[in-house]
Amino acid sequence: MYSIIVVPPPTTEAEPARTRRQLAPGERLTFGRSERDNDLIVPHDGVSRRAGAISAQGAFWTLSNLCAHQTYVVENPEGAGEHIKVGPGRLDAPVPFEFSRIVLPAAGDLLAIDVWAPRHDYLRAEGDLDGDTTAPAFSVDRSKRYFAVLAALCEPRLRGAPHAPLPTVDQVVDRLRPNWPAASRTSVQWNIDYLAVKLRLKPGPQSAEPGARLNGKKESLVSLALRFDLVREDDLSVLTAVAPRRPR
């Protein structure tokens, strides 16, 4: 029942050890250099012993800057420079982004803690704000990159070939490059993984076999997206629209 995912900064010696932490609403995760008082240890001499805390509040989160003299910046990596500043001693500053990167200045280095808020809600075309309405369990932001990736994955089937093979990651990269020049295998794969989290895809038994995993995940995402009309034919315009992407 978590609503927030925290991805710790990479550490040089143990790159795969970036274990994601899941926070349910009301849970709090403290971070800093000290091994005693923190839930997440950031082993860098430039980081305060008790550097800060992340609290999940419903679908969003707040950041407390426990450091005495440094300002933290929370960036929206997809927001074209959009960011907020959280000054020293500021407690529980709300962060509105679905994706965020907390940048910790640490003696010349910049350490990044990624925080995802996959439960953010978005208005659906036919939806309204009345809580009594039967609403779908998913809510996607059509201006985000993950939506473009999902659209590219669904494109062959939406264009009228119901059993068309799914595009490979490389084909998706090529399809998205005109609007997203920095697209790469890694970034597309990252978005596919994020979509699986966002759409709360049940990990299938096949995820035990490493080879079949990737393909199964794409298949499941596409079948879920088409079944619940997360992507419709008119949404394919995100693939052709000329940059800048329209804000929503």
Partner: peptide, 24 residues
Amino acid sequence: TPAFSTPDYTPPELLWSEIGERGR
């Protein structure tokens, strides 16, 4: 069931529950 629900009447175990291809 399809992954639709009315939040006020949804039991906690179905809030943000995992969804398979057959629904929830």
